[in-house]
Design a binder for these strands. Structure first.
Lengths: 230, 230
DNA sequence: GTACTCATTTTGTTGCAACAAAAATGTGAA
DNA sequence: TTCACATTTTTGTTGCAACAAAATGAGTAC
């Protein structure tokens, strides 16, 4: 087999190395909201927390910065990004364009077996919401979205969308008590599942665009009330 | 001044270091088509070419891989990506979504001083085309597009679009003699300038979408004839 | 109290050597 | 000739020490 033939589509580094493990661990912590926006990331601190030497820690920070999951706040400082309202608005515009495209394509290429799992995920969201486990609700909400996006059979697109969620994640997960109000997104998700069954690309796109816009409004309001964005 | 306040929007690493210089040099070479698609990138080879040690060379390769400007072709091999027809089609879909959005927003936020330069750039494109300097034509074409995209005042979006161009670049620039036929894109660019003067977002979006689709068809045809994609 | 200077500490960067894993190459048998 | 296997070479990874640049904080003059 030539090297050309096995060229994968994943942008992530092949698994196995310490640097890769550090990258994924930090990414997970970022999404889960372990670090507050504005938190300063230093090579040595990451190295110590993850019990690795400076090289893999540095690799992880560099990759996160390349993903815009960390941002440069000075010549020698990287921090967890603090989303401004302007940033949030821009990212929402991009999300609507990209996730709308993914949804529309999903309606065309999704197979029934892909669709089946969606109902279960929605039940998990509802259950989590009822139990006031907002963190779980947000997690399953993410599952719901990406289950659909992957149906588009456009892997580059899914990777780019993941990057966008990664940027919003830290701010979002620190806001979840206020953010995940009663029955967030349930209605949009129901409409999405209907549209998907009918293979109606335009309707599916509309459902997701609505969901994103709803989420944006709630997030902005919650952020303003808590002062988490500027 | 707090570090939070000077948080920039650029995803690129702050300039100055050797690793950053290596990254930019390799990026430039990639876009210019110095390396053929499929070319294997090794840390030591890059280090020697750029006269740096392995650390900055490794940094550069990692960042390029994070940009998807290089891809992993095995556990220990990164290569210049070989665009498949499927990849090209997907990236074109994404480009239409993102560059269409940028164009539409540019119509709203572009100021007259931004618009003025476009005519000059178009003249450069025409001159290069007349002189059969296809490389220059492609370069000025890129200038034209990004001049408009930057008018959108959506810096994250522009960065993402740059990433897409970077992926297509190596394949594109190796095809330019066949690709840049007579008067490529001139008509679409004229329509774009008209739409921009009239602040007609929908028309500007349409002009750019057409331009991207035209380019896609030409590139696909040229690629099929030369066998540069699979 | 404020602003400025300078020493100290923190922090990212770089180069390099040792290591492990994968690829390439050579060898021998069928 | 072809295939399997062992050997050699190539190559990415890691840890670390030395270095330079930036952030920090104390002290001082105004």
């Amino acid at each position: 087999m030539t090297t050309e033939q096995m060229q994968g589509v994943e942008s992530g580094k092949q698994a196995g190395g310490l640097g890769d493990a550090a990258y994924r661990e930090m990414k997970e912590r970022l999404i889960r909201g372990v670090y507050r926006p504005g938190h300063k990331m230093t090579v040595r601190a990451v190295a110590e927390e993850l019990r690795v030497s400076s090289t893999p820690a540095r690799d992880a920070i560099n990759r996160l910065a390349a993903d815009a999951a960390l941002v440069y706040a000075g010549p020698k400082t990287v921090i967890v990004p603090i989303l401004t309202e302007v940033d949030l608005k821009e990212i929402t515009l991009i999300r609507i364009a990209l996730e709308g495209l993914a949804a529309e394509q999903a309606a065309q290429h999704g197979e029934s077996q892909d669709i089946d799992g969606l109902g279960e995920i929605q039940q998990k969201i509802n259950a989590a919401l009822d139990g006031k486990d907002y963190r779980a609700a947000l997690w399953h909400n993410k599952e719901f979205h990406f289950r659909v996006y992957r149906m588009s059979r456009l892997p580059h697109l899914v990777t780019m969308i993941e990057g966008l969620w990664l940027r919003v994640g830290p701010s979002l997960y620190n806001l979840y008590p206020e953010f995940a109000e009663e029955k967030y997104g349930v209605r949009n998700h129901e409409m999405a599942m209907e549209a998907l069954c009918e293979r109606d690309g335009a309707a599916l796109r509309a459902a997701f665009e609505n969901d994103i816009r709803d989420g944006y409004r709630r997030l902005r309001r919650a952020a303003r009330e808590s002062g988490a964005v500027e």
